[in-house]
Every structure is written in structure tokens, then in C-alpha cells.
Nucleic acid binder design. Sequence first.
DNA 1: CTGAAAGCGCTTACAG
DNA 2: CTGAAAGCGCTTACAG
Lengths: 336, 336
Amino acid sequence: MPDERRPRSVTRADVARYAGVSTAVVSYVLNDGPKAVAPLTRERVLDAVRVLGYRPNAAARALSKGAADMLGLLVNDNRNPFFAELCHALDQASAETGRSLLIVNSDRTQVTTSEQIRDLVSRQIGGLIIADVLTAREQALVESLGIPAVLIGPFGETDGLQSIGVDFCAGTRESTTHLIEHGYRDVAFVGSAARYDDRERGWREALVDARLAPGMLLHVPFSYQGGYDAGTRLADAERRPRAVVAASDQIAIGMLAAFGERGIRVPDDIAIVSFDGTVTADFVWPRLTTAVQPLEQMAAAAVRALLEPSPPGEHHAFPARLRIRESCGCRPGGGE
Amino acid sequence: MPDERRPRSVTRADVARYAGVSTAVVSYVLNDGPKAVAPLTRERVLDAVRVLGYRPNAAARALSKGAADMLGLLVNDNRNPFFAELCHALDQASAETGRSLLIVNSDRTQVTTSEQIRDLVSRQIGGLIIADVLTAREQALVESLGIPAVLIGPFGETDGLQSIGVDFCAGTRESTTHLIEHGYRDVAFVGSAARYDDRERGWREALVDARLAPGMLLHVPFSYQGGYDAGTRLADAERRPRAVVAASDQIAIGMLAAFGERGIRVPDDIAIVSFDGTVTADFVWPRLTTAVQPLEQMAAAAVRALLEPSPPGEHHAFPARLRIRESCGCRPGGGE
DNA sequence: CTGAAAGCGCTTACAG
DNA sequence: CTGAAAGCGCTTACAG
């Protein structure tokens, strides 16, 4: 028996020969076009494919068509729970259109993001999903490359690119109002200093609506550590707020750790609401009341935006939905 | 000005023309081989590349070479924090060899894992990393495809495939022993029923070493929910154990929620150690004492195993390192 | 050290 | 409805 390892894979020509047709016809039936094929011929081809175990070579197809059945995703760090969930949703959504997702983390030191974008494009991706903040230069690069692109995540809207997000302002306003309805008058906010982020504004507006004085405002990175640091500062404040709005679940969880460490009880000593609706928020104690982002819908919209692009600059904001749990002081499932 | 969108990209032929050489020479300099090129010619080519802003077409290259500069990764669910960190490490490791990572989640209902494997291979990936449990059929498929493959994660070793993991038995044995040294005599174990998982054995051996009676044993899925359920059962047990070994951080965190909900204090009422060393373990309260898996090293080893394959069946186990924090009853950073 | 040319496996006008 | 053939942009023996 000759060397059988990595058998030269069967090619379109083999299928054509076996079925007694031209390779063109094989293409037509496999791609359902662009030409019609007689039902009987079609059956013969399909049969040959089955018998031979034929699989098209995606690279050849990509070269020929000038486009691979792949989408690119640029994300800062797929370990961040929110982005991990977003990646997953995007993988699903793009798989539903028969495309694979090439995920690239931009938090790498050896390579610039521009390099990564160029690399993605050289792989003939059909579109680029950006779940990351881009510098003006980088965005200009993306626009000049001429491939469909869409921004997704908490990065606001921008001229020149389509974008998908949620209504952060309304979401935070609602959760802040919820806290106020619990009777807390002194409501702090912990979020990022990013100017594209509307969560701070939502919090502010809710306080104004309720004619409350502005609460304590802390800017930290979007991470457990950021939340932990904020929690520490809140705990040590001369007048500790009675409630706090966290801009993300991660921040809230970091705060929980800082509070736990100091014996500060949530929600009894300080109530918390947060944003995102990641799974982890449901498995800390107390469970987090959080504004849930509809990731599946957002992901589907992002993929759609690549396949049938809208005008650049167009922004689609989905509503967040407040999920009530224990951290705000409610007793869901308790005595309702 | 004519239509400038998506300018026909500059090709190797353009570069060759501009530099006044053949396309072969362009290839030689860009790939550093297989032929040598005169220094001056080389400069001319490099210059042309710069001036024209040339980028090789990866699809053409893949077709020509029969291999894309891509590695495939099959993972059950990239949202699981441990696997999210593993994905990230693998992305880094493969990027370091100039390859992109095509990540595919197998937790999809519309498509079989075998289909996903075939799809990956049709994209001409240079190797397949499997961070997932495979059925015998699926593994046979991988082997028959003849591409380099490696199993990574808590899935043990297997004939026919190279694999990378950590020494679960020793790791758990060490953490269990640590608990015992705290004076706890009644140590439970919460893990999976998987026969490839050696963590249960490590726990058992530590108890035997200490001449302790076997503790309570619970089998649950590797998830927050699994941990939560286990925590509930532990809490409701007629004789609640004094300490528990969790097979993963996620399980431990789920247990923490169940305990928190019932007012059971950790570590005062029940001490916990877990496994994995994910970031989240450091930001719950109490912080988890956990056996850390050296993900970067494991990822690098996995990529290496693809590029210079070892004999199938070969297994490389890395040691886990116990990270002491508060959940076991220690006071790290406290009064040491 | 360099070039002309075949080939990788597809897709798709162009004829019939 | 089907086929012969050019072309996608690379790589790499094969000559010189």
C-alpha cells in the first residue's frame, strides 16, 4: 500500500470526470448558479460529490471570487466577559450566513492594529467588524480599504462608518431611576472617561429628573480592577453614597469584591445596578440588577450591515432591557 | 475622477514591472527564498513594494502552497472564562508565528462538529487545535484528514492525537492537601463525571495520604450553574462539609453565589479551593485560592506541536501552580 | 542570480 | 442546458 497520508484531495476535475460533465457544471450545481443545470445532470454531479467525498478548496474559491467566505473581527481582548459574549454572538451570526469569523485581538504589543487590519484584508475577508476603539488614522485606513465595515459595541457612532450599539443613555437613565425609586437619594456613578460613552449622561439626567443633587462621579477603566479600585474609593469616602450605578458588570463585580473585603453589605449598605447583562452578573452574590444588551440581535445586525451596507455614518441603537435582581435591593423571586 | 472605491489592488505583477524584474524574483525576496536574490535587486523590489503599497493576496498564496497561514481552533464555547483565556493565549501564540487563528464554537445546533472540522480543513488551515471533547467518530475524522492536530485543555490524553494539558491530579492533590493542612478533616469534591478528568483522583489521593475518610462527592457540569447547584446541595446536606475542592473556578464561583444567598460564610463556614486561575477568581469575594494553569506556555506548546508534530498519542502535561488567596482560610497580604 | 512558464483549484463570461 | 477556456495572484521547478 503506497503512502496514504494526506491523500491528494479530490478536486473539482475529479468530480467532473466521474459525473461525465465539465467542471463548469459542477460549479453551477454546487453554487446554485449562475447557470441552471438539468435535474438529471444535477443528480449525477451531487452523486459524484458524495461518492468521492469532495470538498471545495476555499482558497481557490476565494482567489477566483476575490472574496473569502470569512468575516474579520477586531476586538481589543476577547477575554473580557462582555466581549467574549459578543464574539460568540458574532460567530453564530456569521456562521448563519455560511461565513467563518476570523477573530483578532488588538491588545498585542508586537503588531500595530493597522497591520492587523491590513492582514485581515489580505486574507480576502468579506467585511470587517470592529468591536474596538479606532484611532482616526486607523479608521481612515479602514475607509480607504474599501471593504464593508461596521463598528459594534459601546463605542458610539462615527462619521464614515456604520455602527451598532445600544441606547446607553436611556438604559442608564432607567436603571438610575430604578435606584431612585428604591428611595436612595445619594447615587454615585462609576464609569469610563470616554467621550463616546453616554451612560454617564443617562445617570445625570435621571438625577435631574428626580431633582437630586449630582452624586459622586468616578472614572476608571472597564475592568474588574477598575471596579475594585472604584469600590475602594467609594468605601473610603467621607460620605459614602447609598447607591451606585456601574457602567459595566465587570466594574460592578470588582466593586463587589472591594465591598466584600471591607464588610460593606450590598444592597443593605450600598445598592448597585450595572450594565451589560453578562452571565457572570447572574452568578455573583448578590446577583446584579443590570441593563441587558441584546447581543444576538446586535450581532445579527452587524453581519447584515456588512452584507447589505447602509450609508456610512448610520447608527443603529438597540434598547437595553433592565433585568431586576438583588443588588439594587429588590427581592425577585422572593415574596412577589 | 473615476470610481475610486475598492481600487483593484496592486498585484505581484505590478511590483515586478515597477522594479523591472520577474514576479519570481518578487516572490523570492518577499519569502526570503527559496532562491537567493542580489542585494541591489532586492532593494529595488522592496522599494517597489513600499511605493506601490503592495500586499500579497493570502488566498492566492494559500492556493499555490496548499496551506494558508492560518490555524484552526475548535472550542465548545468561547464565553466560558477559562476557554476565553485559552483562546486569547492561542491567538497570541499563533500570531507569534505569523498565523491567524480561525476560532469555531462547536456549541452550535445547526451544524455538526464534523462539518465544522471539514469546513476548517477546506480553508486550508495549517493545523487544528482542539479545545473540546471529540467523539470517537470525530477524532477518527481528524486523523483521516491528515492535518496536524493537537488536543489542548482538560481532556486528558488519547491515542492517535498529540495532547497538551496540566497535571490535574498533582494540582488537585496539592490544593486538597493545603485544605487539610488548614485543619479541615471533612473535605468534599465538586467536579465533573468525565472519566478523563484526574482532578477527582488527586482529591482522593490527598485524603488517603492524610488518612481521612472520603468526603462528599458531587458531579455537576463545568459551569456557574453547575457550581450553584452543587453549592445548594452542599448547603442543604445534613452534615455540611467543612471544606470543598472545586474542579474549576467557575464551579467555585457558582458555589459562592449559592453560599452567599444562604448566608453561609466562606471560608469561616466552608473553605474552598478551585482550579484554573482565571482572572475572575481574583475578583470575587473571598478571592479564590486556585491551581493556576500556565496558559501561555500551554498555548505556545500547542502551536509548536502543530508546526513540528510529535508522534500521535504523545501527551505533555504542565504543572499547575497553587495560588493562595482568601477562600481557603489564608490571609495573604494580611499579617504574614 | 534571474526569467519564462506551468500549475494550484476554483469561477464565469463566451459560444454553441 | 453544457463545454472549452481564460483568469484570479501567487509559488516553484526548470533553464539559462
